[in-house]
């Protein structure tokens, strides 16, 4: 349906935190808020992410 979907997603693995994910994509864990803000629809707290969640990485 959407051949121009440009969004990048990350599936949360066991033991991962937003900080770690931010480090992976941005090289800087302190930018985890960017990911949190982009996923407010599924994340209520940046410390509570669940294995298997697919997070949009802006």
């Amino acid at each position: 349906e959407d051949p121009w979907d440009v969004k990048q997603y990350h599936e949360v693995k066991k033991g991962e935190t937003l900080w770690k994910i931010s480090e992976k994509y941005y090289g800087d864990g302190s930018l985890y808020k960017k990911i949190f803000e982009a996923n407010r629809d599924i994340l209520k707290n940046p410390d509570l992410i669940k294995v298997g969640q697919k997070l949009h990485i802006p």
Binding site: W4, V6, K7, Q8, E23, K24, Y25, Y26, G27, D28, S30, L31, K34, P58
Partner: peptide, 21 residues
Amino acid sequence: RMVAAVESRMDILSQAKSLPG
């Protein structure tokens, strides 16, 4: 949309203290 995605990522990376590996 492609340009916007690149701009968004560039904007975030410009705020990073270091770059991804």
